[in-house]
Design a protein around this nucleic acid. Structure first.
Ligand SMILES: NC(=O)c1ccc[n+]([C@@H]2O[C@H](COP(=O)([O-])OP(=O)(O)OC[C@H]3O[C@@H](n4cnc5c(N)ncnc54)[C@H](O)[C@@H]3O)[C@@H](O)[C@H]2O)c1
Ligand SMILES: NC(=O)c1ccc[n+]([C@@H]2O[C@H](COP(=O)([O-])OP(=O)(O)OC[C@H]3O[C@@H](n4cnc5c(N)ncnc54)[C@H](O)[C@@H]3O)[C@@H](O)[C@H]2O)c1
Lengths: 211, 211
DNA sequence: CTGAAGTTGTGAAAACAGTAACAATGTTAC
DNA sequence: GTAACATTGTTACTGTTTTCACAACTTCAG
């Protein structure tokens, strides 16, 4: 076998789907690649290539069926069922994320949160039950959770990541500004905000060629 | 001219610097590329390439001088002076970010925050003065701010981005889950958390080859 | 001094990501 | 029916990012 899905394509598909949902509600039945591209701020060729990756075909005359495409992306991303997520670290960022996902990302369910602060554990915060970290090895496998979000201080991120992986987690979205060493079969996405800002600040300084 | 700095290199340099600072405090004077690589969880070749990009040279026998390298990265990233940042949207995420930068990212100063909610404007929140959005065209140029962070609802992100750009902003870190249409000379970094989670959840599901 | 060991700097290759180009195809105008 | 048109699916290309591989260099043991 040769085919692999580029991670960037997956991220764009997520965006396309959200855009399509808005059009679905307005009753639009078909869209051309250049219309989707324009909304997503990418090139039409990029859109067609991404849709090729999931094996969805449009009609040369009508474009893509909003309904069928939305459905097709949904099935590809595997979100027929709501995906269960674990959150570790219910601090400032963790609370904001929990609030965000409850209200704005209905396809993900923050099934369980974990913290080691006894003032936070045992309570429901932002619609999410907070358990002590000792409960990770019990709850993660029992719930069949495979995906976790880390919003921990840098010092404890690696340790908790190891615990999660041992409990069966196969993908981690890490907000702590430290690199994590994980087995190769665990998918890791780092969102180091400091590094992102450093990048933006750097390129804000030196002029870039416009278009 | 031919040389351009890859954005990813800038982000990694930010990470290297933080790691080096920790070693500086411990009194370590020299490090080899493979030691830096191990800490940053990248390959040694990657480290050497990144350092080549900023024109820093180590010694084949002693490796890189922690002190001189830290200094060199600092001068390259332009952070001799603290960089001024504007934050737009002081909601759940904005407040968490402001708190984070005050306490953990001393190289950036959140010079001004903006919001359109009168209950928030005119007050200091998380160490950061919140102005009404009408003040953007006045404050941004006056302070010489070139970099902004967007933590706004999707509906108002494009509008505020336009306002910021008109006021002179040259780089935007966008947390709203919508694509932004900006002039080509403005550097844009999107941090769409939903898309990131979607990516992680996707690859958590299907097995990956380990190493 | 010589050789072994270990590291850097960098050209070349590979992997990855995005763009362009175009044949194939359905649609419309007449 | 058919010519003109617009769009898709796909292949080939271009550019960027990462890895590989190795010459050049420094040190040190003997
Ligand atoms: N606040 C932000 O906007 C922001 C932005 C980017 C990155 N981050 C990063 O995200 C992480 C969390 O940031 P924050 O602002 O929420 O910090 P915070 O201190 O508010 O929250 C950290 C939480 O983790 C818990 N915790 C600490 N050690 C733990 C452990 N061993 N096991 C379980 N829970 C533990 C604490 O009890 C606390 O609730 C930090 O690494 C920070 O650098 C934060
Ligand atoms: N909360 C999170 O953890 C999180 C995570 C990822 C992405 N996001 C995104 O970040 C954005 C903000 O999220 P949030 O949770 O902070 O939402 P929020 O509703 O808590 O905060 C939004 C803030 O923006 C202000 N605002 C609204 N319209 C404005 C305008 N036109 N001009 C200026 N200010 C305006 C509001 O007054 C409010 O203070 C959203 O787009 C959300 O999708 C949030």
């Amino acid at each position: 076998m040769k085919s692999e899905i580029p991670p960037n394509t997956v991220a764009r598909l997520s965006l396309y789907r959200r855009l399509l949902e808005a059009w679905l509600e307005k009753g639009t039945t078909h869209l051309y690649s250049h219309e989707i591209a324009s909304m997503a701020c990418v090139t039409p060729a990029q859109v067609r290539r991404d849709l090729m990756a999931i094996g969805y075909s449009g009609s040369p005359s009508r474009g893509y069926s909003v309904d069928a495409l939305e459905d097709s992306i949904g099935r590809f991303l595997g979100s027929d069922t709501v995906r269960k997520i674990a959150l570790v670290g219910m601090g400032n960022l963790g609370r904001a994320l929990a609030t965000y996902f409850v209200s704005r990302a209905p396809r993900f369910r923050m099934t369980a949160a974990f913290d080691n602060d006894p003032r936070k554990t045992g309570r429901v915060i932002a619609g999410c039950m907070v358990h002590p970290v000792e409960a990770i090895p019990g709850i993660i496998p029992a719930e069949g959770i495979r995906t976790a979000v880390l919003a921990l201080p840098p010092e404890s991120a690696q340790e908790m990541a190891d615990t999660l992986v041992k409990a069966g987690v196969k993908g981690i979205l890490n907000f702590a500004p430290v690199p994590l060493r994980l087995p190769g079969d665990v998918f890791l996405e780092n969102r180091d905000v400091t590094a992102s800002l450093e990048k933006v600040a750097f390129f804000s300084g030196q002029p870039r060629e416009g278009n």
